[in-house]
Structures are given as structure tokens and as C-alpha cells.
Amino acid sequence: MSSYPEDDQLIRQLAAGDEGAWRRLYDDMRSPFRLFFIRYGAMAPEDALNLFQEAMVVLHRNCTGGKIQPPLTSSIKTYLFGIGKILLKKNGVDTRHWDDDIPELPVAPEVESREDQRANAELVRRLLDKIGEPCKRLLELIFVHGYVMDAVAEELELPSAGAARKRKFDCLKKMRDLIVFKT
């Protein structure tokens, strides 16, 4: 039985890319996150807001990338605040002496540098431009916009979800071969 049934439900919506759910989470967490980091980290209010934005991006990435899945072992709030602390640690801030109630996370959130992210995004954009428009559109729908196979089939007028799935692997293969060609 899950310790956080409501958050489990929410994480499913977030993982599915429900924009409304993300917006509500953003609005709900903005104040408590600011208070926490201004209080314990003595951060300037603007810095706390920047950190909040970064932490939300990491949470989004981990949710949509399947790194956080129900049943959760911590609440989403704990997870988000934990990401904030990890981001600060990466910037050399020592958070060990904080007298807070955010435990060490059972699953450390993956925090990638902005530079690495930009480089990865650039690589994929370059490859997408080389595999033809139909493949590009299909892979963007799946991996960028989070469409499920049924929706992809409908959007691209393919006969079935199975056909969309097969096309997806063909297109991925095209991209993967371009990586080998480059390296």
C-alpha cells in the first residue's frame, strides 16, 4: 500500500505530460519552496525563485523520463525540495548543517548540467533534420510532446498504434545509424 496515494495519482498525471497538473504544481509549490530556501539557505528571494525553476525542470525531466514512478517513497514536495538541495550542493553550498525536515532522498534525482543538456539537445536536433520530415514529426510527437501511440497513429493517419510503434523503431534506428556514421 502506498504511503502517498494522492501524490501517486498526481505523478501519473505529471508523467503523462498533463500541462494543467504541472501548472497547478508550479503554483502550489512556488511559495513553500521559496520560504524553505530563504529560511534555511538565507537565499535572496530572486535566487530562491531561480532555484525553484531549475528544480521544477529537473522534476519534469525525472517524471517524464520514468525516473520517478508510483508507489512513491517520499512526497512530491519532499522530492522537489530534495532536488533543490542537490542543485545547491552542486554549486558548492553545504546543506548538511540545515536543521530541516527534508530527508536524504531514497532515489537521488538525476541532475544534469545545462551545458550537457544543450549539447544533447543539439545532437538530436541535428540528427532529426537528417532523417526526413515524416520520421522527424513522428519522433517529436512521441519523445518531445509525450504522445501515446494511439494519439500518434491518429495524428499521422497511420492504420494502428502498432503501425506507429513499428515506425517509431524504424525511425529511431535511422537516427542511431547516423550516430555511428558520425563517430
Partner: peptide, 13 residues
């Protein structure tokens, strides 16, 4: 590849 897609998605978010 998947890292690149995730990065593009993060940029949009």
C-alpha cells in the same frame, strides 16, 4: 538519443 530528446523536452518545459 533519448538524452537528447529529454533535453529538448526540458527546454520546452
Amino acid at each position: 538519443l533519448f538524452g537528447g530528446f529529454a533535453a529538448i523536452r526540458s527546454e520546452a518545459f
